[in-house]
Structures are given as C-alpha cells and as structure tokens.
Amino acid sequence: MTLSAQDLGIDTGRWNIDPTHSTVEFVVRHMMVSKVRGSFEKFEGYADIADDVTQSTVTATIDASTISTRDENRDNHLRSPDFLNVTEFPTITFTSTRIEPAGENWKLVGELTIRGVTRPVTLDLEFNGTSPDPYGGKRAGFSATGEISRKDFGIEWNAALETGGVVVSDKVTINIEIELVKA
C-alpha cells in the first residue's frame, strides 16, 4: 500500500529549502577522543513532492567553501586539497534516487557528490509535519541522518598518533534539519 501526500498532510509540488531555518551539519571523531562538529553556511535545494510520496525527489547543492567548524585554521585546511579542495570542487551535491518506507519513517536514497566523486548514500528521513506560516505560505519540516566514509570520496588525509589511531576518523556522521517552503 502506498502512502499519499494527502495522507501525510503535505501538498504535492515544489517545496524550496529555507536556508535560514535549516542546517547541514557533520560530526567527525578527532584524535580518537573527541568529536568535532561542523556545518555548511550556504546551501540550496528543493523537494518535488509527488502524490505517491515514494516517487518524490530531492535535490540539494552545498557551497563547500562555507564549511565552518568555528576554527579558522581548521576550516582553511578543510577547504584545501587535503580535504574538500573547494577551488577545484566548489560544490557538494545530492540527488535522490528513491524514497522507501522504513517503519514510521523513511529511507532517502540518493547520489552524493563530493570532490567530483559520486557515491550512493542512504539517509534516515523523518517527516516532522507541516504548518501554515504567518505570511500566508506553507512550511514542512524534515530531519535526516546518516553516515559516510570520507575515503569513499577521495578524502584520505590523516596523520598517525604516537599512541595509535589517527587524527581524523574516516566515518562522518551527517545531521540535517530542513524546513521547506511551498513554492
């Protein structure tokens, strides 16, 4: 049985990301003992909601140069060829390929491109509901989480620690909070 957009209470059609009420964040283990959090300050995208919600699509583009971990030296290193190489690869993109039911939530499956390398990614997707806004528009909220291997995207820089282990983990946890506005 398919779940319709009407069943969820969301209108079909184009919904644009509201970047001022959305976040694209990541977490990486540092020095084997702590976790560093970062985010991207500029991104855009949209969701095209189909009546059969499993036929909906999501497209997003992130300005890789806007990476922020609240440390200028680290951010500059993350922009360098050791990591994102933003001069040669200024954007990170995501294009969904399918949406699958997963209990009360969803799996958002798509292609993530970082540094010109495209890999499949599956995100756990939670629909947070819809609401009218004070300006006569409609809003919808989604949360998405997942993990990627940075090495899968050619990001291999690291340094060994004297005590064993490495400076930066391979695993990157992704946390996204998106507010959409009906176009």
Rank of each mutant, 00 (worst) to 15 (best):
33 V>W: 03
89 F>M: 05
119 R>K: 15
144 A>F: 05
59 T>L: 01
89 F>L: 06
46 Y>D: 09
89 F>A: 05
72 E>R: 15
145 T>Y: 00
39 S>D: 03
63 D>F: 05
26 F>I: 09
34 S>I: 05
183 A>G: 15
98 R>E: 15
129 G>W: 10
31 M>Q: 06
118 T>P: 09
183 A>F: 01
13 G>D: 04
105 N>D: 15
140 A>W: 04
126 E>H: 05
39 S>V: 02
138 K>I: 01
137 G>S: 12
18 D>K: 11
126 E>Q: 14
34 S>W: 01
145 T>N: 13
8 L>N: 07
167 V>R: 01
136 G>S: 09
37 R>M: 11
142 F>D: 08
175 N>V: 14
16 N>R: 13
70 R>V: 06
67 I>N: 09
139 R>T: 12
148 I>D: 03
5 A>C: 02
70 R>I: 02
141 G>W: 08
89 F>T: 10
159 A>C: 00
147 E>Q: 14
87 T>Y: 01
148 I>G: 02
176 I>N: 03
173 T>D: 11
161 L>D: 08
180 L>Q: 03
142 F>E: 04
151 K>T: 15
26 F>G: 07
68 S>A: 13
53 V>D: 09
52 D>P: 05
160 A>N: 15
45 G>Q: 04
58 V>D: 02
120 P>I: 13
113 T>P: 12
74 R>D: 04
177 E>K: 08
106 W>G: 07
166 V>W: 08
141 G>Y: 11
63 D>H: 12
116 G>R: 10
101 P>F: 03
112 L>F: 06
8 L>S: 06
163 T>E: 08
152 D>K: 06
92 I>V: 13
6 Q>H: 13
34 S>T: 14
81 P>F: 10
142 F>M: 12
50 A>C: 02
160 A>G: 10
65 S>F: 01
135 Y>Q: 12
23 T>E: 13
169 S>H: 04
98 R>G: 12
96 S>F: 10
109 V>D: 04
92 I>C: 02
168 V>I: 14
117 V>C: 01
152 D>M: 02
96 S>P: 08
28 V>I: 15
41 E>K: 15
45 G>I: 06
73 N>D: 07
168 V>G: 01
94 F>A: 10
46 Y>I: 01
63 D>G: 04
167 V>W: 00
131 S>C: 06
158 N>V: 09
28 V>P: 10
99 I>N: 10
109 V>P: 01
170 D>C: 02
64 A>F: 09
121 V>A: 05
127 F>T: 11
59 T>N: 11
182 K>Q: 15
72 E>P: 11
2 T>N: 08
151 K>G: 00
